[in-house]
């Protein structure tokens, strides 16, 4: 469990993170979504104890990072794919890391195997491609078999196969009951990897919710209806209080009534339905809608509402 309590961080006159509170529960993948420069990395650095917040606190299992007794056995963090010395071999990088937390050295070969780097373990890490570097970074997070894992943009620069591997891997970690917090500015990526979302913009919380809820709440509840009885149906729908838009001559787009309500209406009125289809707004659309313009930033959770209400 990761908890952020009213985190605030300024760099000079710039506010990187403002009054940010959220929770990351175990057992699911929580996506940390926001445009580039929205404060995701800063937040993760504060969770990892690398940057000190100006106010507020980030806690892991109730404690700040610097008070963890065996940090690598409790938290695995991949904040930067290149956080190793280029002249050191992959194995030696993991060896010194293991020694810091009294982790048995056999774990080094185990995690190298787990991420598929065994064959290049004795090569200098500086020669690695970005994808291999990411894998080495992931191997480092697994060394201490931690219950909490953080990944900052782990699929950046990966090829499609690598992306699929990371996605599968993150979900596997969460399925084992671990807390998995993964940031991305790629909405499509998050929609396939994450169960829950913490969405921020300009350092402020926009939403803390599930992926499904985020999409449905942001969608306008539009339903597409294909019917031969266009005119009669439009009249009935309008009569029932819906807003009806023209489709391509064979369909209608309906707002204000759900698909079941439209189906019931059709049965009552004896109108023919050929197709009835709720239009799911993509995560991307939902995101764009929520983040258009600074004034549009509105938290959608109670905690966030209280936090941002006093913030502006």
């Amino acid at each position: 469990m990761i908890t952020a309590h009213s985190l605030t961080k300024h760099y000079g006159a710039t506010t990187a993170v403002h009054n940010l509170s959220f929770e990351v529960p175990p057992g699911v993948v929580t996506g940390f979504l926001g445009p580039n420069g929205s404060g995701k990395s800063t937040t993760m650095r504060m969770i990892m104890g690398l940057d000190a917040p100006d106010s507020g606190a980030a806690l892991i299992g109730g404690r700040p990072y610097c008070e963890l007794v065996w940090p690598l056995r409790e938290v695995g963090g991949l904040l930067d794919a290149k956080a190793f010395h280029p002249a050191r071999t992959a194995r030696n990088h993991l060896r010194w890391l293991a020694l810091t937390n009294d982790i048995p050295l056999r774990r080094v070969d185990e995690v190298l195997d787990q991420v598929g780097l065994s064959s290049v373990a004795n090569r200098r890490a500086g020669k690695f491609s970005l994808g291999m570097s990411q894998r080495l970074g992931i191997a480092a997070t697994l060394l201490g078999d931690p219950g909490v894992l953080l990944f900052d943009e782990p699929v950046n620069g990966l090829d499609p196969e690598g992306i699929r591997w990371v996605r599968h891997f993150l979900r596997g970690l969460a399925a084992e009951g671990r807390t998995v917090f993964v940031s991305s500015h790629l909405i499509s990526e998050m929609s396939q990897t994450a169960d829950r979302l913490v969405v921020i913009g300009r350092g402020r919380l926009i939403a803390e919710t599930t992926v499904a809820d985020f999409v449905s709440r942001s969608g306008r509840g539009t339903v597409r209806l294909i019917t031969p009885d266009l005119a009669a149906f439009a009249e009935a729908l309008t009569g029932a209080g819906a807003t009806v838009g023209d489709g391509d001559g064979a369909s209608l787009t309906v707002e204000g009534l759900s698909a079941p309500q439209i189906g019931d209406l059709a049965a009552r009125e004896g109108l023919r339905v050929h197709e009835l289809m709720p239009i799911t707004v993509s995560l991307e659309d939902a995101f764009m809608e929520l983040t258009q313009g600074e004034v549009e930033y509105r938290p959608t959770t109670m905690a966030g509402a209280a936090a941002a209400g006093e913030g502006e």
Binding site: M48, G49, L50, Y65, C66, L68, P71, L72, V75, G77, L79, D80, K82, A83, F84, H85, P86, H93, L97, T100, N101, A140
Partner: peptide, 18 residues
């Protein structure tokens, strides 16, 4: 060397008591 390579962040993550 730790700063130029970024190793310092791995180091501090492993042993945060500065």
């Amino acid at each position: 060397g730790e700063y130029s390579s970024g190793t310092i962040r791995s180091t501090l993550a492993a042993t945060p008591r500065r």
